[in-house]
Design a binder for these strands. Structure first.
Lengths: 145, 145
DNA sequence: ATCCAATAGTTGCTATAACAACCAAACTCA
DNA sequence: TGAGTTTGGTTGTTATAGCAACTATTGGAT
């Protein structure tokens, strides 16, 4: 077959992801929020009081990452962790007042970012892009059983 | 606007990238090669003797990462670093015999991986995907000036 | 009731990723 | 030619990312 470096679609996806993430990082810097920490906050702004393992599922991430990011967010004062009544293993994440206020400032920035990324791309094209990404994900999932 | 978490295209791209990278990592484990180390090797298998700063440009990565990954690849015995004649600042990366042999084993795995990812996706769809990713990249580039 | 498995979280380790600060070499230009 | 800038690389720090191994708790099965 002899593919060249530039032929691998996964490499293009990877580069795009790095590029977008780097821009997000820049945009969020003034809020003392890292990109992945922001993903946790986005979920909490939608639904407060999620448990760590629920976040791990939503974000497709290892529970160790969630634990450490949650710990960092707690240190920054944006969330509080509280044990779940009825299951002493679980921890629930709650927004602090500061965390709630942060949402009012960050969400508009996130939406503006999404606008920027999608500039000049139609709704149909966006759906097609999502469809292809989903297809690739399921292809890999399949191959791994 | 009120976007939901699942509406952000950047998050979908990010998740896809993580998923693909995680599969690559699994596939490369037996060769003692991490995914990003493999990208450097792929470039060297195409063109031996590249300099570190050239790799940084090809991979859109900070030079610090390249330096550390190159150092790791050297420790593993896959490459040797040699100063460039005529410019004592630069380092050139050369494949060792072991590194060259590794290519014969890894390249087929990489191509099979690409096949898996693109299964059921037509050439036209792939081109469209690339076009949209490129568009998003230039959108962000534009916004950052 | 008790053993066993599954679940939730943490700690330790390795590998990206980028920024800041730094050194040395090379270049520029007045 | 000599000062200031640019370039190539390294080290230190912070933030992901996932695996292995561990503790504690819960649930299940006999």
């Amino acid at each position: 077959m002899k593919l060249s470096f530039t032929d691998y679609i996964s490499i293009k996806i990877h580069k795009t992801d790095l590029n977008l993430t780097s821009y997000v990082k820049e945009q969020l810097k003034e809020f003392n929020l890292a990109p992945e920490q922001n993903l946790i906050m986005m979920l909490l702004w939608e639904k407060d009081g999620l448990e760590q393992h629920q976040l791990a599922i939503h974000l497709n991430k290892d529970k160790t990452n969630i634990a450490r990011m949650a710990s960092n967010l707690e240190k920054k004062g944006f969330i509080k962790r509280a044990p779940v009544e009825g299951d002493r293993r679980s921890l629930r994440l709650f927004l602090t007042e500061e965390g709630k206020e942060l949402g009012n400032k960050v969400i508009p920035v996130a939406e503006a970012f999404n606008e920027t990324v999608c500039k000049g791309i139609s709704k149909e094209e966006l759906l097609e892009l999502e469809r292809l990404l989903t297809k690739m994900n399921s292809n890999v999932l399949c191959a791994r059983q």
